[in-house]
């Protein structure tokens, strides 16, 4: 007897979702506002999108952000998947507690602390701050998210499959690549996407660890936001929201279709 949702249930869900989505919807709507005043509707226009294309600084920031995201997400996915395998498959090993602590702590640790500590590391080693320091910092933080996502999938993965592969003559390494990895691939892909999005999104850590010539998009947006609301930011935000939403919804539909096929 699964009770359906009551009126109260429906009301809370609708109100909650409205609260979560309304501000973003307003932001998107006003990116098409012809008026420079954000709150006055001056008719439909795409001129702010045109303005974006002429903003060289902004374009440069987008380019930096994409490169940082691609490289750091890939790095984090490899390292994070390894960490997940280690945590799930090898039972107890020396330093496990410390290891799992290092995985979970960055998930909740205030970004300001992470940024500050990474910056001090780079300063201590005399490394010039720039593109690579941001990339490495993002990889470090997003690695932990990757581990959590992949770990969840690995736990539900039937270990007998891997053992069957071993039984049929695979080395542990071969068994991992031939059987385990193809089966956890959707989770690994999702983890990569998460890492990429987090990198795309990050302001605080990038502000600490970046240097001249490596201004990321959030840093650029932040410096403009401090000066006030402007339709250009609405436009670039809309593009970013649209990009991410498309990716996430596509991934969701893809996964749903797979599930439908499996069932």
């Amino acid at each position: 007897m699964k009770r359906g949702p009551s009126a109260f249930n429906i009301a809370s869900v609708v109100a909650g979702l409205a609260f979560l989505h309304l501000p973003i919807v307003l932001l998107v709507v006003y990116s098409f506002n012809a008026s420079r005043l954000v709150t006055v509707w001056g008719g439909f226009s795409t001129k702010w999108y045109g303005a974006l294309l002429r903003d060289d600084q902004l374009l440069a920031a987008i380019w930096v952000t994409l490169r940082v995201g691609l490289i750091s997400a890939s790095l984090a996915t490899v390292l994070g998947t390894l960490a997940a395998v280690a945590l799930v498959r090898s039972g107890r090993f020396k330093g496990r507690l410390l290891f799992s602590g290092m995985i979970y702590a960055p998930l909740v640790m205030p970004e300001v602390i992470l940024g500050l500590s990474l910056l001090l590391l780079f300063v201590a080693f005399g490394l010039p701050r720039g593109f690579w320091t941001v990339t490495v910092s993002h990889a470090t933080v997003t690695l932990c998210y990757v581990t959590v996502v992949v770990q969840a999938r690995l736990i539900s993965f039937d270990k007998a499959l891997e053992e069957a592969a071993r039984d049929l003559g695979c080395t542990p390494l071969k068994a991992f690549f031939a059987v385990t990895l193809p089966n956890i691939a959707p989770a690994v892909a999702a983890a990569w996407m998460l890492a990429f999005t987090l990198s795309l999104d990050d302001l605080v850590i990038a502000s600490f660890t970046s240097g001249p010539g490596a201004t990321t998009l959030p840093m650029r947006i932040y410096s403009q936001v401090r000066l006030g609301v402007s339709p250009e930011i609405n436009a670039v935000s809309t593009l970013l929201v649209g990009l991410v939403a498309t990716g996430v919804i596509a991934a969701y539909l893809f996964q749903n279709r797979r599930r439908g096929r499996d069932a």
């Binding site: 501000p23 973003i24 307003l26 959030p218 947006i221 936001v225 935000s237």
Partner: peptide, 18 residues
């Protein structure tokens, strides 16, 4: 519920300024 979580934190905060 997850969708806003994937959307930039900074942008979501910015949306409230308006």
């Amino acid at each position: 519920v997850i969708l806003p979580f994937w959307t930039s934190f900074l942008i979501r905060v910015y949306a409230w300024i308006a």
